[in-house]
Write a protein that binds this DNA or RNA. Sequence first.
DNA 1: GCCAACGTTGGC
DNA 2: GCCAACGTTGGC
Length: 152
Amino acid sequence: MKSEPTTYSFDDLMRDGRTMWEGVRNYQARNHMRDDMAVGDLVLFYHSSADPMGVAGVARVCSEPYPDPTQFDPESPYHDPTARDDDPRWMLVDVEPVEQLPVMVTLADLKARAAFKDMLVVQRGQRLSVQPVLKKHFRRVLTLGQANLEIR
DNA sequence: GCCAACGTTGGC
DNA sequence: GCCAACGTTGGC
């Protein structure tokens, strides 16, 4: 999951303990949250448009998908006037922090390694803010980031 | 600040 | 249903 750290960083998530992944307004990204994520799934938290860019930490999905309340809020920058109460358009999940990576794994790191050649986030023009990660890539990021966490 | 990629909108 | 125009994302 990508976030611009000036908007919401991994540090912010650690401070908050939990957050709604609000504001996703892309159908494919929404579908990943709505259809492909389950409570307990681990997430790579990626800082985009930042210095440095890259994976800052590991988070975990901690809710079922539910309607993004900001779509109904006229005050919100994510307000969607076409969304109806009885037919919500945008869904989200909550996430909680698991571990900050002791060593951030930057986009440059990912691009420099053949192991990540087929990882979506390093592909040119890949803008999806919520995207699937192969287990082999996830493991490798944990290793490079010197995470304490291990996954099976 | 630039611009390639690419999703969405709306006229036809 | 096509596709040009337009807006946004996000790396550089």
